[in-house]
Design a binder for these strands. Structure first.
Lengths: 182, 182, 182, 182
DNA sequence: TATGAATGAGTGTTCATTCAT
DNA sequence: TATGAATGAACACTCATTCAT
């Protein structure tokens, strides 16, 4: 043997991500996940403590990376250069996430409103914005910061039905984001 | 005489809006709505055919206004001036909607994904963007258009925990939107 | 004026008969009846005391006629001639009933099991059979009697998908019935 | 070891059959079934996908046997001998079914009108009749065929309140059926 | 002769979760 | 490392019925 050691946990995560992205967290039932994996619901509970635990596990790599970014950000001066660098890091993060991840992220505010992980993510976002601008910067400046990050996410979805390629959409998002943080 | 005649329908709508905005459409049950109104669930069904019917009714004023805007838009040349005018109209629409409405709107993409009314609203949004830019405009241009409208919505929510007043947030959203379609 | 005097009651009966025959008594709701008549459910309650009251009213003409037949039957000798005469009367009754009525009759045993009117009708049937044969006649004789009457009802329905005309089906039912009591 | 392994599914079927036979399919609620079994409604859904699924499961042994009979019938010449043989097979089927089954069967036409399984059973019946007689046989002949099978069912119920024993009733039904198919 | 508004009790169904094996 | 069996709480929805107007 050697490094077998049940990939089931990973398979659950992958399937859950697929389905959460497709129908949303609330509308996806554990039954669906289990069925698509040809295991029983109870099996899910062997690997995770609850439904929420599954979604949390999906995000914790990302959250760690965001935390690292925040840590780095704390040591930087609040200059335009820093802001551009942050935008680029964030874009890379988004770009390297699986598509389901990005889709899920998009919905965090609404579908996962009452989940702790939702609150955690939003908290991180707020922190980043706070670290990017003075807390008493004008509303417009702060809004631009927020929309910069939002643009990167949005780019992947809002032009989906056009014939613009994914890479081009991503590039457009990054360009706009950079423009917004000036 | 005058305006008696059971305002229950309106009260249902108001309460539903409150709760949908607070917890999302899916997570709000008819029981909650009924209880908050001190009526039975069955009473809701006297006034509406289904849960979806309630949420639809909340949106249909707005949808009509968007349709009017779209109709107007079709007759305009695709100039910067038109774009600015549209942004202003849209901002006015958003500004005049009750806060719950705006919140609900924010979540249309995710919480109301499988509802016909969700699809309808997104379709309208796509139409507006298509009418604002050439269909073969560069991705960046199109994305800016989308983010312009998004900024107006977002302004109300993303800076909510700061000490910036609602009016100032709204103004910032409008300013950014104008800049983006500029 | 003169003989106006609301035909609503009759219209309710007609519509109820239609729907009861189509979907069965249980599966037909007062809402459906009311909607098809373009009146409110409450209007039904002005004309009838309950849902059961409606179905009872549909049958009471028929029950009266059956009672008359039973009264006549009591005075007859239990001869073949009497049996043939009864069969003919019953066939005429069935033939003159609206098709919905016959269909409903067919289902009395099952769909209206817990309704008093169902029990009443079955009771009448049993009485007729008892009056036709000695109570200690062999099982076969009694069964034939029952099946004779059943044939008349069944004829209208069981061959419905063939290309045999209604009149011919009815005639076949009568012929078989006569043969059975013969 | 041996035959442990939760007989719950079978117990659900037995109880459902009882209740369906007693009050009809529509009037029997899952709550009643569950209560009589001292389980929760949700337990029923562990074993069956829906209420209809339960009733379908009750019939599928019978349907298989009817299908076998039909298959056999297809290979036979349409002689009196074949008809008599069929009647005997059918009588055996009926005789070997639990009483609730027969009762339920009796009501298929009316209480289970909108259920697929109801349509399936009726379809089988029509097929048998078609295979028994030429499709252009006189109405009377076809009707006799139908009533032959009906007699076997009816015999068990119509004389139930007399003091005739079940076995004698069954025999009478068979005798009449044989007489009818000539 | 109706209607508008509402109710209480019920329906079938789905869910996340548990636990002995 | 799983499964079979079950639960309790909820859900959207429908029904026959009532009653003031």
């Amino acid at each position: 043997m050697g490094e077998r050691r049940s990939d089931t946990r990973e398979r659950i995560q992958a399937t859950a991500l697929e389905l959460f992205a497709e129908h949303g967290y609330e509308k996806t039932s554990l039954r669906e996940i289990a069925e698509r994996l040809h295991v029983t619901k109870a099996a899910l509970y062997y690997h995770f403590n609850s439904k929420e635990d599954i979604v949390v596990s999906l995000f914790d790599g990302l959250i760690a990376e965001i935390d690292a970014t925040i840590a780095w950000l704390r040591d930087q001066p609040r200059t335009t250069e820093t802001r551009r660098e942050l935008v680029q890091r964030y874009a890379r993060l988004a770009h390297d996430s699986p598509p389901g991840m990005r889709r899920l992220l998009q919905d965090v505010r609404s579908s996962m409103r009452e989940l702790s992980v939702g609150e955690q993510l939003q908290e991180r976002m707020r922190t980043m914005v706070r670290l990017l601008t003075d807390r008493d910067a004008p509303a417009l400046t702060q809004l631009k910061c927020v929309m910069a990050l939002a643009s990167i996410n949005a780019a992947m979805f809002v032009l989906q039905d056009t014939d613009i390629a994914a890479e081009e959409r991503h590039a457009a998002g990054l360009t706009l984001a950079l423009e917004l943080v000036g």
